[in-house]
Write a protein that binds this DNA or RNA. Structure first.
Lengths: 223, 223
DNA sequence: CAAGTAATTTGTCAATTGATAAATTAGCTA
DNA sequence: TAGCTAATTTATCAATTGACAAATTACTTG
């Protein structure tokens, strides 16, 4: 969209800055790659990438030794650098009822998930290289799911898990809740279906159903 | 795995039937393609496909005019022909408590979803051609989700939906339940995470939490 | 303003891809 | 067993791909 103007057409010749500082260009490549990969998948050609930013294809190799290195960088950019440390704090803040904390957390999380790059790149990554998501998912489990499980026990007087299997029960039901939010992004960005009219309402209802349904079930399945 | 034995090595020359009846070969191609596409995605090369079945690549073009025709056929084979009409009957059978019906339905559905072809091909399809899943998903909505919503109202005395938005509330919460089952397949076949030790238990808990949580929420959000 | 540095482009390569045409041969039938 | 039909293979093409080397040129510095 930029840097491709016909020099003769542009009277403000100064705006046609074709040569960028390396850090700037690298940043531009990564951002552009996020957009292109999210649309076309990691099979997008390096020529597609270059064209999307108005640059020639071999230039990419000045900044990334291989295409795979760029793919890895994109993944890192989207899933590691965009992790919000506040999420864990919100979930653990006992001055607020757990239902409220969960609503705040999932609404914010949904805002990420409902961006096309997030869902599509996460899924593309999982499909093309098995296990690449594992680090992200184990962080999700340790820092979010296990905190939610603990807070749930604390607020609803659920006994501590004795065996691994009872801890798995808790995590499974939290996975179910989490899935239902993430899957809204899948419905929109992978299935091309409409999003609920009122996103906040959809999440409020999910959390309320979770709070009403999960604690009694956890108690009933104890043993 | 077959039809590639060295003739000199095989004493039972008869077993080396290389030439198949067209219907047989076509069936073999489709089945083989399901396996390969599910592993490598629709970007798998026609040579990969041919190699997987011990046949040369141009032969595929005797049976399918283009690669895309084969892709479409695979999608049809997996998602249209494997639809089980009994699902709708189970859900509507009022001689059984709704919770039981849902458990039976989702357990059977989970058996499909936890096959790698189902999840991976469905997602690959969604990613590569937007909208291709829509027909399947609208059938899911009409024949399963709306039935569940109706049965839920009937069994738990929930008033009929007045506006579209209240019907959307119901469908959203059923989507949430459905997501949590489908996503078990995503976790296994896309993220490469372990499946719950006891799948039936995991589904029982989800359904029980759904039954305990959803009706009160639907009543509370009325208006 | 001249010269050097390095960002960017031009040119090119080998490998892989979907697809077609022509040659081959397995297996049926007379 | 000879001959025919069609299933299958061999050979090949043009387009696309990731990657590299060398030429070019924008910008900085003295």
């Amino acid at each position: 969209m930029n840097k491709l103007m016909d020099p003769g057409t542009d009277p403000q010749e100064k705006t046609r800055q074709r040569r960028l500082a390396p850090e700037e260009r690298e940043h531009q490549i990564v951002q552009s790659a996020i957009a292109v990969f999210s649309r076309l998948g990691f099979d997008a050609s390096t020529r597609d990438l270059a064209a999307a930013m108005g640059v020639t294809q071999p230039l990419l190799y000045r900044y990334f030794p291989t295409k795979e290195a760029l793919v890895d960088r994109v993944y890192d950019e989207v899933f590691v650098r965009r992790w919000n440390p506040e999420w864990e704090e919100w979930l653990a803040d006992r001055s607020i009822p757990l239902a409220e904390r969960l609503k705040r957390y999932f609404k914010d999380y949904a805002r990420f998930v409902l961006r096309s790059e997030w869902v599509r790149i996460f899924i593309f990554a999982g499909l093309s290289k098995a296990g690449i998501n594992r680090k992200y998912l184990s962080r999700l489990r340790e820092r979010h799911f296990l905190v939610i499980a603990r807070e749930l026990r604390s607020e609803y007087q659920i006994p501590e898990p004795t065996a691994d299997s009872t801890e798995e029960d808790e995590v499974e039901l939290i996975w179910a809740m989490h899935s239902s939010v993430f899957y809204m992004g899948v419905r929109k960005w992978i299935y091309d279906l409409p999003t609920p009219k009122d996103l906040d309402r959809a999440i409020d209802m999910r959390v309320d159903a979770f709070i009403a349904g999960v604690p009694p079930v956890l108690r009933a399945y104890r043993g």
